[in-house]
């Protein structure tokens, strides 16, 4: 297995009114290629901060992050994001297909290829034929599908998701979970997701990174040894699923 993302001794501090706020303390972790990794932890622990470092939106105070063997100093090539707040991440003045086209401008695809890329991405997420709609005309679940399609259209090696299903209803959440697993298989994408939903983390992941403490440290890395393909009914009824979620829950709450 090759390492896709390498986080090495990363510390993060924010200057604040009452002194320096130390958020992440010496985080080290490697994400294997094609793996699905979830980052969990109590709210406010610094999950999203770690994600912003991974996506190159800000540099760590110390330590290094390597993506595909390259040390990053800004948003790396071949990385796409899906954020929780789809209403503020899709551009409301552009139709769904123009939203996708905007992120493809860098790739200089040519008209026909661009069309094909947009349409196949929409099809992949079950949104074929909605390209001409504006995001706000779609339901929450469909908007999140649209942002997944936008991410896929760039043909990323890495997909980073920040609480992607936190704002959709439970039924839709199950559908979208299965969608991201399908997408991972279809494209062989390495996926890193921040979530506060432990069941979701266990259901989707190969590995779960538990952050805990102030400043946050990697408290545990849990390998989810439940075979793929997973299914909402069978996997969630697996006794081992229950064991793992209990373990992760205890870790997150600092009970173990």
């Amino acid at each position: 297995m090759t390492i896709e993302i390498s986080i090495r001794n990363v510390c993060m501090e924010f200057p604040g009114a009452d002194g320096v706020k130390h958020v992440l303390d010496n985080i080290s972790y490697d994400v294997q290629e094609h793996h699905f990794v979830s980052i969990v932890g109590p709210s406010g622990v610094g999950k999203t901060t770690l994600l912003r470092l991974l996506t190159g939106l800000m540099p760590p105070t110390s330590g290094e992050i390597h993506v595909s063997g390259q040390r990053i100093s800004g948003p790396p090539k071949g990385l796409a994001v899906v954020l929780q707040d789809y209403t503020r991440s899709l551009m409301p003045w552009l139709t769904v297909e123009k939203n996708i086209a905007l992120t493809l401008r860098k790739q200089k695809l040519g008209r026909a290829n661009m069309r094909e890329r947009i349409e196949s991405s929409l099809e992949e997420v079950g949104l074929a034929g909605t390209g001409k709609s504006y995001p706000w005309q779609l339901s929450g679940g469909m908007q999140q599908r649209a942002s997944i399609a936008r991410a896929l259209a760039t043909r990323p090696d890495i997909l980073v998701m920040d609480e992607p299903f936190a704002s959709v209803d439970a039924q839709t959440r199950f559908d979208l979970e299965d969608l991201v697993l399908k997408v991972r298989d279809d494209f062989g994408i390495t996926t890193v997701m921040v979530t506060h939903d432990i069941d979701e983390a266990v259901y989707l992941s190969d590995e779960i990174v538990v952050l805990h403490g102030k400043p946050a440290q990697v408290r545990d890395v849990v390998t989810v040894d439940i075979p793929f393909p997973r299914s909402q009914m069978a996997t969630r009824n697996n006794p081992h699923f229950a064991e793992l979620r209990t373990h992760v829950y205890a870790m997150v709450r600092g009970l173990e």
């Binding site: 912003r52 707040d85 760039t154």
Partner: peptide, 10 residues
């Protein structure tokens, strides 16, 4: 959030 999106998509 829009700016972060624009930035990550380079």
């Amino acid at each position: 959030t829009l700016l972060a999106t624009a930035s990550v998509f380079r």
